[in-house]
């Protein structure tokens, strides 16, 4: 594969990312500080209450939420990591050839089995 990217990356090549970061950060900080300085400040108890449909809010919002969300999160962690295994394979796909393809089919077969299991188990069923 012909490549136009430099064959060698120096740590310094990643320096622009820092510049980008600095720029973005600068922008964010600037806007937040400016609005803080020039905006009016008038506090009152009613105003500072959290706003839920205009009626008085009850209790704390830090309540447990449906387990489904956790399941989704956990599934994501697992699947995402398995997807990560595909990246190097994809990049070197041509070099690995048929063998690599078959191995990866096996891997994806397992992935799909797991996926099918999760669906059958009703983890993704939203009532």
């Amino acid at each position: 594969m012909e490549t136009t990217a430099p064959a060698q990356y120096l740590p310094a090549d990643y320096l622009p990312i820092v510049i980008q970061f600095a720029a973005a950060l600068g922008f964010v900080v600037f806007s937040m500080v400016v609005t803080h300085l020039i905006g009016p400040k008038r506090k009152s108890q009613v105003k500072n209450a959290s706003w839920e449909c205009g009626i008085e809010s009850k209790g704390d919002a830090r309540t447990p939420i449906s387990i489904k969300y956790f399941l989704i999160a956990i599934l994501f962690v697992l699947f995402d990591v398995e997807v990560i295994f595909l990246y190097p394979w994809a990049v070197n796909f041509r070099a690995l050839g048929i063998d690599g393809f078959i191995w990866m089919l096996l891997f994806m077969g397992l992935l799909l089995t797991g996926f099918y299991y999760v669906i059958r188990k009703g983890v993704l069923k939203w009532e």
């Binding site: 956790f70 999160a73 990591v81 398995e82």
Partner: peptide, 16 residues
């Protein structure tokens, strides 16, 4: 990394 992910999944499940 892969194993740690599995561990995270299990660990979070246990904590939940």
């Amino acid at each position: 990394m892969a194993v740690a992910a599995a561990e995270v999944a299990v660990g979070l499940a246990i904590i939940v």
